[in-house]
């Protein structure tokens, strides 16, 4: 089985995110980390290959990490490699700055098409863009089965089929499909491992291939949407804070009445 995992490097969740001059997220001045929701995808990919004998170099199973982003996104890929993935591909090109989901999915789909993957795993959402559309778009572009928002994944390597339970606000669906499939996993699916010391050392010897657009065989497309303006909203004004002395119930009710909430 050849599995690809799409991971994104994002600003640290606690970082104060701001818009840059170009109308894109200012990624220069914040700490960047592997999107934590993508760690679950890396973990699930490793569990799938481990359940089938592992991903020893030269063996039948491998996990390739794919990311599109600036040069320093190799750090996010390296983290996934230190968890146990085999190799990485970074697509990095000045012309991709500010790429939206349509563009991102077009590039990722092209890279995936050029290698023979059986499964592609993704997180359900990047914590910066929060669109939750890239996995569905990749599936649509490749004409592959879409198995997204998986709370559990069962792979039958002999039959080349995958079954998932899709967990969303609309309930739980059991869904099955044959290889190749695009799968996205929710954070309830597993507990991502911490890279071991051995894993970290091993990851330094693993290859990350960096490609520009020409190497992928594409040129940059239009920007599908444009930011007209972005304004920082005033921080929430400090509210009232009282310490309960037995009277705060009525005070809370008064507050709700004043605000016309009851």
């Amino acid at each position: 089985m050849k599995i690809a995992v799409c991971v994104k490097q994002v600003p640290d969740s606690w970082a104060q995110k701001k818009m840059g001059a170009s109308g894109n997220l200012d990624r220069e001045n914040v700490d960047a980390v592997l999107n934590d929701l993508d760690e679950y995808a890396v973990e699930e990919a490793l569990r799938i290959v481990e359940a089938h004998g592992g991903n020893e170099e030269g063996g039948p199973h491998s996990v390739t990490v794919i990311s599109m982003g600036p040069a320093r996104a190799t750090d996010a890929i390296r983290k996934a490699l230190s968890m146990g993935a085999n190799s990485g591909i970074l697509i990095s090109d000045a012309n991709l700055e500010g790429a939206d989901a349509l563009e991102t999915s077009r590039i990722l789909a092209e890279v995936i098409k050029n290698s023979q993957f059986d499964l592609v795993l993704c997180g359900t959402e990047s914590t910066d863009a929060r669109m939750s559309v890239v996995p569905a778009m990749i599936a649509a572009r490749l004409d592959w089965a879409q198995l997204t928002f998986a709370g559990s994944v069962t792979v039958n390597a002999d039959a080349q089929t995958v079954s998932i339970s899709r967990v969303t606000e609309a309930g739980v669906d059991a869904i099955t499909a044959s290889f190749p499939c695009v799968i996205s996993v929710v954070e309830k699916i597993n507990e991502p491992r911490y890279p071991s010391f051995k894993g970290i050392m091993a990851s330094k010897k693993k290859t990350i291939e960096t490609k520009d657009l020409a190497a992928v065989g594409l040129s940059a497309e239009v920007h599908w949407s444009q930011v007209v303006d972005a304004t920082e909203r005033p921080p929430r004004a400090a509210g009232v804070k009282i310490t309960d002395d037995g009277q705060s119930g009525p005070l809370l009710v008064n507050f709700l009445v004043e605000k016309k909430l009851i």
């Binding site: 104060q16 239009v222 599908w224 949407s225 930011v227 007209v228 303006d229 972005a230 920082e232 921080p235």
Partner: peptide
């Protein structure tokens, strides 16, 4: 849109299609 946890208001438009 309210982005970055609601700290920023963004106005945007679709330019194609």
């Amino acid at each position: 849109q309210l982005v970055f946890g609601g700290s920023t208001t963004v106005h945007s438009k679709i330019s194609h299609g």
